[in-house]
């Protein structure tokens, strides 16, 4: 055989993996069809991006009719806002299989472009959407072990030895230092950043071993687009699914209050300003849809490439996708 002058043309996923992906996509579609959930498609390019300071929308420009300057458009980090506009317009239960984009995210479990499964279920509450997510994952991966439901607070007590809802900031920092985590100037991390550090280094690697773990009841400060569960302290009706230490999905019992959503977007932009990040335009069309009335619903975003990775036991996301962005 001749030496290949440019071996990078080759896909990083084998044909067997591509076949498994196709089979899993067919199973997903069958799962949703069986539950009367409608498949939809929403734009990858939108006028607004996300305010979340931890996410970066890749942006591009595009000449649109009626304009003489190219418009700045954002590749979506998830189809959430457009899908909520459909829900507000009366679509009923919907799902989407599509590409999502997150700038700067690349590593063993990250690629800047990835396939996201996102679905919304009017009428399903927090417990019911977790049950449905567990059923979907069992169906598609063939991993049938019953799921574990573990609160964020309990997971931290068990694996990091602190109470994440009540511990004072110095105690959280001390815990990180005791585990040998050196992040330079500690003043630059906010409380939630420290919790993220402990979660990703100490807690997450111990979740979902042998059976899926649903991490539930996140701190209210990490509610994102989830509603709050009253209590002392209140917590967010948000969950994340972990399999073999890898985060696979994130779900919310969705916030439907337009005023509260606007406040959270504004708070995001204040955090962006503190962190020296550009402020993002707020998606007024989403807020208008929420004001018009989003039905009570729950929603989940699930990383399909990671699901393929854990289902097939692949060590790196690159082996689950044909062409990672650096070779695209």
């Amino acid at each position: 055989m001749r030496a290949d002058p440019m071996p990078e043309w080759r896909p990083t996923a084998g044909v067997a993996v591509l076949r498994a992906r196709a089979r899993m996509l067919a199973q997903l579609r069958a799962f949703f069809a069986g539950r009367d959930v409608l498949e939809v498609e929403t734009p990858a390019l939108c006028n607004a991006g996300v305010t979340d300071p931890h996410l970066t929308n890749p942006a591009t420009t595009c000449l649109l009719p009626g304009g003489h300057e190219p418009r700045r458009l954002y590749l979506q980090t998830s189809p959430e806002y457009a899908m909520k506009r459909l829900l507000a317009a009366g679509s009923g239960a919907i799902y989407q299989i599509g590409k999502a984009f997150r700038g700067g995210e690349a590593g063993r479990c990250h690629n800047p472009e990835f396939t996201l499964i996102e679905w919304y279920r009017p009428g399903l509450d927090y417990a019911a959407i977790i049950t449905e997510t567990a059923a979907l994952v069992a169906e598609v991966t063939g991993r049938r072990a019953a799921e574990e439901r573990l609160s964020y607070a309990e997971a931290f007590r068990r694996h990091a030895g602190i109470d994440p809802l009540r511990a004072a900031l110095p105690a959280i920092r001390e815990r990180a230092a005791a585990a040998g985590m050196d992040v330079g100037d500690p003043e630059r991390l906010e409380r939630d950043d420290w919790l993220d550090l402990l979660l990703s280094h100490l807690v997450a690697p111990r979740l979902g071993l042998g059976r899926p773990t649903f991490l539930t009841e996140f701190p209210a400060s990490q509610a994102a687009l989830a509603r709050l569960i009253p209590g002392d302290p209140p917590v967010a009706a948000r969950f994340e699914l972990f399999i073999e230490g890898i985060e696979i999905a994130n779900g919310f019992h969705e916030l439907t209050d337009a005023g509260e959503q606007r406040r959270r977007f504004a708070e995001d932009n204040r955090r962006r300003a503190r962190a020296g990040l550009p402020e993002m335009p707020i998606d007024e069309r989403l807020l208008a849809a929420l004001a018009a009335g989003l039905p009570e619903c729950s929603g989940v975003a699930l990383g399909f490439d990671r699901l393929v990775m854990v289902a097939l036991g692949l060590p790196d996301l690159r082996q689950a996708i044909a062409f990672p962005t650096d070779l695209a």
Binding site: H54, A106, G107, H110, D192, S200
Partner: peptide
Amino acid sequence: YVKPGKGQ
């Protein structure tokens, strides 16, 4: 590279 889906 480690990153929680919605975190730092």
